[in-house]
Amino acid sequence: MVFLLQLIVSGLVIGGVYALVALGFVLIYKASDVINFAQGEFLLIGAHLALTFLLVFNLPFIPAVLGALTVAVVLGAAVERVVLRPLIGEPIISMIMATIGLSSALRGLLQVFWGTETRTFPNIFPQDAINLGGVVVSQVYLWSLGIALVLLALFSFFFKRSIMGIAMRATADDQQAALSMGISVKVAFAVTWALAAAISTVGGVLLGNINGVNISLAHFGLKVLPVVILGGLDSIPGAIVGGFIIGILENLAGGYLDPLLGGGVKEVAPFIILVLILMLKPYGLFGKQVIERV
Protein backbone atom coordinates (compact mmCIF):
# COMPACT_ATOMS: atom_id res chain seq x y z
CA MET A 1 0.00 0.00 0.00
CA VAL A 2 2.73 2.40 0.99
CA PHE A 3 4.66 1.34 -2.07
CA LEU A 4 1.63 2.12 -4.24
CA LEU A 5 1.18 5.55 -2.67
CA GLN A 6 4.87 6.21 -3.04
CA LEU A 7 4.63 5.44 -6.74
CA ILE A 8 1.57 7.62 -7.14
CA VAL A 9 3.18 10.58 -5.40
CA SER A 10 6.30 10.48 -7.53
CA GLY A 11 4.03 9.96 -10.53
CA LEU A 12 2.13 13.11 -9.63
CA VAL A 13 5.33 15.09 -9.31
CA ILE A 14 6.75 14.02 -12.61
CA GLY A 15 3.26 14.33 -14.09
CA GLY A 16 3.09 17.97 -13.02
CA VAL A 17 6.31 18.71 -14.83
CA TYR A 18 5.13 16.72 -17.85
CA ALA A 19 2.00 18.84 -17.83
CA LEU A 20 4.01 22.07 -17.82
CA VAL A 21 6.19 21.02 -20.70
CA ALA A 22 3.19 19.64 -22.55
CA LEU A 23 1.49 22.99 -22.14
CA GLY A 24 4.40 24.60 -23.96
CA PHE A 25 3.84 22.23 -26.88
CA VAL A 26 0.10 22.74 -26.88
CA LEU A 27 0.34 26.53 -26.86
CA ILE A 28 2.37 26.53 -30.03
CA TYR A 29 0.40 23.78 -31.70
CA LYS A 30 -2.89 25.48 -30.94
CA ALA A 31 -1.72 28.80 -32.28
CA SER A 32 -0.07 27.62 -35.44
CA ASP A 33 -0.44 23.84 -35.95
CA VAL A 34 3.30 23.54 -35.47
CA ILE A 35 4.89 20.86 -33.31
CA ASN A 36 7.89 22.49 -31.72
CA PHE A 37 10.69 19.97 -31.75
CA ALA A 38 12.96 22.46 -30.01
CA GLN A 39 10.86 22.33 -26.86
CA GLY A 40 13.44 20.16 -25.09
CA GLU A 41 16.17 22.71 -25.79
CA PHE A 42 13.92 25.41 -24.34
CA LEU A 43 13.87 23.40 -21.10
CA LEU A 44 17.61 23.03 -21.07
CA ILE A 45 18.25 26.68 -21.90
CA GLY A 46 15.85 27.76 -19.17
CA ALA A 47 17.63 25.63 -16.60
CA HIS A 48 21.07 26.84 -17.69
CA LEU A 49 19.98 30.45 -17.62
CA ALA A 50 18.64 30.11 -14.10
CA LEU A 51 21.85 28.40 -13.00
CA THR A 52 23.91 31.15 -14.56
CA PHE A 53 22.00 33.88 -12.78
CA LEU A 54 22.24 31.86 -9.59
CA LEU A 55 25.90 30.86 -9.65
CA VAL A 56 27.62 33.35 -11.92
CA PHE A 57 25.71 36.49 -10.98
CA ASN A 58 25.10 35.24 -7.43
CA LEU A 59 21.46 36.19 -7.39
CA PRO A 60 19.06 34.61 -4.90
CA PHE A 61 16.80 31.89 -6.29
CA ILE A 62 13.65 33.88 -7.09
CA PRO A 63 15.41 36.80 -8.83
CA ALA A 64 17.55 34.28 -10.69
CA VAL A 65 14.48 32.48 -12.01
CA LEU A 66 12.84 35.80 -12.89
CA GLY A 67 16.00 36.74 -14.77
CA ALA A 68 15.96 33.43 -16.63
CA LEU A 69 12.28 33.94 -17.43
CA THR A 70 12.94 37.37 -18.85
CA VAL A 71 15.70 36.13 -21.13
CA ALA A 72 13.58 33.12 -22.13
CA VAL A 73 10.61 35.30 -23.04
CA VAL A 74 12.79 37.48 -25.26
CA LEU A 75 14.37 34.41 -26.78
CA GLY A 76 10.99 32.78 -27.43
CA ALA A 77 9.64 35.88 -29.15
CA ALA A 78 12.86 36.21 -31.14
CA VAL A 79 12.65 32.62 -32.34
CA GLU A 80 9.12 33.30 -33.55
CA ARG A 81 10.18 36.47 -35.29
CA VAL A 82 13.32 35.15 -36.94
CA VAL A 83 12.62 31.48 -37.59
CA LEU A 84 8.86 31.00 -37.80
CA ARG A 85 7.36 34.24 -39.08
CA PRO A 86 9.14 34.18 -42.43
CA LEU A 87 7.51 30.79 -42.95
CA ILE A 88 3.93 31.90 -42.31
CA GLY A 89 1.89 30.82 -45.30
CA GLU A 90 4.34 28.05 -46.21
CA PRO A 91 3.26 24.44 -45.67
CA ILE A 92 3.13 23.44 -42.01
CA ILE A 93 5.76 20.78 -42.66
CA SER A 94 8.34 23.49 -43.45
CA MET A 95 7.68 25.11 -40.11
CA ILE A 96 8.04 21.79 -38.33
CA MET A 97 11.29 21.13 -40.17
CA ALA A 98 12.42 24.58 -39.09
CA THR A 99 11.85 23.67 -35.44
CA ILE A 100 13.94 20.52 -35.94
CA GLY A 101 16.71 22.67 -37.37
CA LEU A 102 16.27 25.09 -34.51
CA SER A 103 16.63 22.23 -32.08
CA SER A 104 20.05 21.28 -33.47
CA ALA A 105 21.19 24.87 -33.66
CA LEU A 106 20.20 25.58 -30.07
CA ARG A 107 21.85 22.38 -28.91
CA GLY A 108 25.09 23.49 -30.53
CA LEU A 109 24.89 26.92 -28.96
CA LEU A 110 24.14 25.38 -25.58
CA GLN A 111 27.36 23.40 -25.73
CA VAL A 112 29.34 26.44 -26.70
CA PHE A 113 28.03 28.41 -23.77
CA TRP A 114 27.64 25.80 -21.07
CA GLY A 115 29.53 22.71 -22.14
CA THR A 116 28.24 19.17 -21.83
CA GLU A 117 28.96 18.50 -18.15
CA THR A 118 26.06 17.96 -15.82
CA ARG A 119 25.53 21.08 -13.73
CA THR A 120 23.64 20.80 -10.48
CA PHE A 121 21.48 23.29 -8.68
CA PRO A 122 22.54 24.29 -5.18
CA ASN A 123 20.06 23.12 -2.57
CA ILE A 124 17.19 25.50 -2.96
CA PHE A 125 14.30 23.63 -1.49
CA PRO A 126 14.53 22.07 1.97
CA GLN A 127 16.13 18.67 1.56
CA ASP A 128 14.74 16.52 4.36
CA ALA A 129 12.05 14.11 3.39
CA ILE A 130 8.75 14.35 5.16
CA ASN A 131 6.52 11.54 6.22
CA LEU A 132 2.94 11.75 4.93
CA GLY A 133 1.19 8.91 6.73
CA GLY A 134 3.85 6.36 5.96
CA VAL A 135 4.75 7.71 2.53
CA VAL A 136 8.12 9.33 2.61
CA VAL A 137 8.44 12.20 0.16
CA SER A 138 11.36 14.45 -0.46
CA GLN A 139 10.41 18.09 -0.07
CA VAL A 140 11.91 18.94 -3.44
CA TYR A 141 9.18 16.82 -4.96
CA LEU A 142 6.43 18.51 -3.05
CA TRP A 143 7.71 21.95 -3.95
CA SER A 144 7.95 20.99 -7.59
CA LEU A 145 4.44 19.64 -7.62
CA GLY A 146 3.13 22.74 -5.85
CA ILE A 147 4.83 25.11 -8.25
CA ALA A 148 3.67 23.12 -11.25
CA LEU A 149 0.09 23.15 -9.99
CA VAL A 150 0.10 26.90 -9.32
CA LEU A 151 1.48 27.60 -12.78
CA LEU A 152 -1.00 25.30 -14.46
CA ALA A 153 -3.82 27.04 -12.64
CA LEU A 154 -2.48 30.45 -13.65
CA PHE A 155 -2.25 29.44 -17.29
CA SER A 156 -5.72 27.95 -17.33
CA PHE A 157 -7.06 31.13 -15.86
CA PHE A 158 -5.13 33.22 -18.38
CA PHE A 159 -6.62 31.34 -21.33
CA LYS A 160 -10.11 31.13 -19.95
CA ARG A 161 -10.51 34.63 -18.59
CA SER A 162 -7.96 37.18 -19.74
CA ILE A 163 -8.66 39.09 -22.91
CA MET A 164 -5.24 38.21 -24.30
CA GLY A 165 -5.86 34.53 -23.61
CA ILE A 166 -9.23 34.67 -25.35
CA ALA A 167 -7.67 36.57 -28.25
CA MET A 168 -5.02 33.87 -28.61
CA ARG A 169 -7.63 31.12 -28.70
CA ALA A 170 -9.65 33.15 -31.17
CA THR A 171 -6.60 33.49 -33.41
CA ALA A 172 -6.10 29.73 -33.25
CA ASP A 173 -9.71 29.29 -34.39
CA ASP A 174 -9.89 31.74 -37.29
CA GLN A 175 -6.98 34.04 -38.02
CA GLN A 176 -8.77 36.34 -40.41
CA ALA A 177 -11.78 36.73 -38.16
CA ALA A 178 -9.42 37.48 -35.27
CA LEU A 179 -7.75 40.11 -37.42
CA SER A 180 -11.17 41.65 -38.03
CA MET A 181 -11.44 42.21 -34.25
CA GLY A 182 -8.16 44.08 -34.32
CA ILE A 183 -6.22 41.15 -32.89
CA SER A 184 -2.79 41.23 -34.45
CA VAL A 185 -1.83 37.71 -35.44
CA LYS A 186 1.83 38.66 -35.15
CA VAL A 187 1.37 39.75 -31.55
CA ALA A 188 -0.59 36.59 -30.74
CA PHE A 189 2.15 34.38 -32.19
CA ALA A 190 4.93 36.26 -30.45
CA VAL A 191 3.13 35.99 -27.11
CA THR A 192 2.59 32.27 -27.73
CA TRP A 193 6.27 31.58 -28.22
CA ALA A 194 7.27 33.80 -25.34
CA LEU A 195 4.88 31.96 -23.02
CA ALA A 196 6.02 28.56 -24.26
CA ALA A 197 9.63 29.52 -23.57
CA ALA A 198 8.72 30.85 -20.12
CA ILE A 199 6.82 27.76 -19.10
CA SER A 200 9.63 25.53 -20.38
CA THR A 201 12.07 27.50 -18.26
CA VAL A 202 10.10 26.72 -15.14
CA GLY A 203 9.87 23.07 -16.20
CA GLY A 204 13.62 23.03 -16.80
CA VAL A 205 14.37 24.54 -13.40
CA LEU A 206 12.10 22.07 -11.58
CA LEU A 207 13.47 19.06 -13.40
CA GLY A 208 17.02 20.34 -13.15
CA ASN A 209 16.57 20.57 -9.40
CA ILE A 210 15.61 16.93 -9.28
CA ASN A 211 17.86 15.36 -11.90
CA GLY A 212 20.64 17.83 -12.60
CA VAL A 213 21.07 19.87 -15.75
CA ASN A 214 22.39 18.03 -18.79
CA ILE A 215 21.33 16.93 -22.23
CA SER A 216 18.82 14.43 -20.84
CA LEU A 217 16.66 17.45 -19.99
CA ALA A 218 16.36 18.13 -23.68
CA HIS A 219 15.29 14.56 -24.31
CA PHE A 220 12.61 15.02 -21.72
CA GLY A 221 11.09 17.58 -24.03
CA LEU A 222 10.36 14.85 -26.55
CA LYS A 223 9.27 12.31 -24.00
CA VAL A 224 6.37 14.63 -23.47
CA LEU A 225 5.05 14.04 -26.98
CA PRO A 226 2.86 11.10 -25.91
CA VAL A 227 1.40 13.31 -23.20
CA VAL A 228 0.36 15.95 -25.68
CA ILE A 229 -1.05 13.54 -28.17
CA LEU A 230 -2.85 11.73 -25.40
CA GLY A 231 -4.48 14.90 -24.11
CA GLY A 232 -5.29 16.14 -27.59
CA LEU A 233 -2.62 18.27 -29.24
CA ASP A 234 -4.62 21.46 -28.99
CA SER A 235 -6.20 21.08 -25.58
CA ILE A 236 -4.90 22.91 -22.54
CA PRO A 237 -6.85 20.82 -20.02
CA GLY A 238 -5.77 17.81 -22.08
CA ALA A 239 -2.10 18.64 -21.57
CA ILE A 240 -2.64 18.89 -17.84
CA VAL A 241 -4.66 15.72 -17.41
CA GLY A 242 -2.46 13.87 -19.89
CA GLY A 243 0.65 14.90 -17.96
CA PHE A 244 -0.64 13.46 -14.72
CA ILE A 245 -2.00 10.29 -16.30
CA ILE A 246 1.27 9.48 -18.02
CA GLY A 247 3.32 10.45 -14.97
CA ILE A 248 1.37 8.13 -12.68
CA LEU A 249 0.94 5.21 -15.08
CA GLU A 250 4.59 5.33 -16.02
CA ASN A 251 5.58 5.09 -12.37
CA LEU A 252 3.14 2.30 -11.66
CA ALA A 253 4.38 0.33 -14.65
CA GLY A 254 7.95 0.92 -13.55
CA GLY A 255 7.22 -0.11 -9.96
CA TYR A 256 5.16 -3.21 -10.59
CA LEU A 257 6.06 -4.50 -14.03
CA ASP A 258 9.75 -3.68 -14.30
CA PRO A 259 10.74 -6.22 -11.62
CA LEU A 260 8.63 -8.88 -13.33
CA LEU A 261 9.70 -8.22 -16.88
CA GLY A 262 13.24 -7.22 -16.18
CA GLY A 263 13.07 -3.48 -16.76
CA GLY A 264 12.29 -1.10 -19.58
CA VAL A 265 8.53 -1.07 -19.10
CA LYS A 266 8.63 2.38 -17.55
CA GLU A 267 10.04 3.86 -20.72
CA VAL A 268 7.63 2.08 -23.04
CA ALA A 269 4.52 2.45 -20.92
CA PRO A 270 3.60 5.98 -22.06
CA PHE A 271 3.63 4.91 -25.68
CA ILE A 272 1.52 1.84 -25.03
CA ILE A 273 -1.04 3.94 -23.16
CA LEU A 274 -0.95 6.39 -26.01
CA VAL A 275 -1.72 3.81 -28.65
CA LEU A 276 -4.56 2.36 -26.58
CA ILE A 277 -6.19 5.73 -26.03
CA LEU A 278 -5.82 6.84 -29.62
CA MET A 279 -7.57 3.70 -30.75
CA LEU A 280 -10.58 4.76 -28.70
CA LYS A 281 -10.31 8.55 -29.11
CA PRO A 282 -8.47 9.61 -32.25
CA TYR A 283 -8.40 13.31 -31.26
CA GLY A 284 -6.93 12.46 -27.86
CA LEU A 285 -8.86 12.74 -24.63
CA PHE A 286 -9.74 16.40 -24.99
CA GLY A 287 -8.78 17.21 -28.56
CA LYS A 288 -10.73 19.71 -30.58
CA GLN A 289 -13.18 17.93 -32.80
CA VAL A 290 -14.03 19.44 -36.11
CA ILE A 291 -17.41 20.97 -35.49
CA GLU A 292 -19.97 19.98 -38.06
CA ARG A 293 -23.48 21.22 -37.81
CA VAL A 294 -26.26 19.67 -39.81
Binding site: I166, D173, A177, S180
Partner: peptide, 9 residues
Protein backbone atom coordinates in the same frame (compact mmCIF):
# COMPACT_ATOMS: atom_id res chain seq x y z
CA UNK B 1 -19.56 37.52 -44.69
CA UNK B 2 -20.53 34.06 -43.50
CA UNK B 3 -20.55 35.00 -39.80
CA UNK B 4 -17.11 33.61 -38.96
CA UNK B 5 -17.75 33.06 -35.27
CA UNK B 6 -14.93 31.46 -33.29
CA UNK B 7 -16.36 27.95 -33.28
CA UNK B 8 -14.52 26.57 -30.29
CA UNK B 9 -15.10 29.59 -28.08
Amino acid sequence: EGRRVFEHL
